[in-house]
Simulated assay, not measured.
Amino acid sequence: MREILRQMGRSGMILAGFAMVSVLVVAATYHGTRERITRAQQQALAMQLDTLVPPARYDNQPTADTLQLRDAAFGSDSEGTVYRARKAGQPVALLTTIVAADGYAGPIQLLVAVNADGRLAGVRVLSHKETPGLGDAIDIERSNWISHFDGRSLDDPAEAQWKVKKDGGVFDQFTGATITPRAVVKAVHRFLEYERDHRAALYAAEKTR
């Protein structure tokens, strides 16, 4: 009986040892993988930012010059990250992700870049679930519709025309899919208003200790 108990004890210790080693291996793998994933995400983000604000326009690191903000202008209950591009310390542009929550098939995530003069450097769709062949024309790979925001501002067009043409505005809608472009136009206009009203705070330099 004692021998059986001793064998059970040894088996238990061996199993515990294997379990501990497995936990350590998993932890080490997770830690290494997490760092690689984070680096890959940062690189992908930098590439996305550069598509709208070319690196030649700034000399800082926008992904390190950020603000965390929460406002309805971002179209989400979660905090939004604002990336600031500067040259010789002067504001060049800011970039952030916003959500057009009222897309036809659900929320549409957008990357928006606004120059320091309030004009749009550009808009790109990051993710959506809109209907293929209809609403997905908001994607730059599908059509150039999204590029029509380039250079626009709150004064161009006038506020009453920040709508799709069906609603009396200047932006094209898609045949059989008006809801999708309407949601994007509304979200971009909303953020431009926020940028105008908070420009000084958005570009304020980080406080040094």
Rank of each mutant, 00 (worst) to 15 (best):
R57W: 07
D71L: 06
D71F: 07
P55C: 07
T66V: 15
A64R: 15
N60T: 04
Q41W: 02
R57K: 12
L52S: 06
A56H: 09
L52K: 03
Q43V: 13
T66G: 10
T66Y: 03
D50R: 07
L45Q: 07
Q41Y: 05
D50A: 15
M47V: 11
R57N: 13
Q61H: 09
Y58G: 05
A44M: 10
V53R: 00
L67H: 07
L45T: 05
Q43K: 10
L67E: 04
P54W: 01
A40Q: 15
T66K: 08
P55W: 08
T51P: 00
T63H: 11
Q48L: 11
P54I: 00
M47K: 13
P62Q: 02
L67T: 02
D65M: 04
M47D: 13
A44I: 01
Q41K: 10
D50V: 00
R70A: 15
D65N: 09
V53Q: 03
A46K: 08
Q42E: 15
P55F: 05
T66M: 08
P54H: 06
P62T: 05
P62A: 01
A44N: 13
R70L: 09
Q43C: 00
Q48A: 14
Q42W: 05
D71M: 08
T51S: 11
A56N: 13
Q48S: 13
R70W: 09
L49C: 06
A46W: 00
D50K: 03
P54T: 06
T66S: 08
L69P: 01
D59N: 15
D71I: 05
D71C: 06
N60G: 08
Q41V: 08
P54N: 08
D59A: 04
Q61N: 14
D65K: 05
Q61T: 14
R57V: 08
D59K: 02
L52N: 03
P55M: 09
L69G: 05
Y58L: 06
N60Y: 04
A40K: 10
Q68A: 15
P54M: 00
N60K: 02
T51N: 11
A46G: 02
D50G: 07
T66L: 07
D50Q: 11
Q42G: 09
D65S: 07
V53L: 06
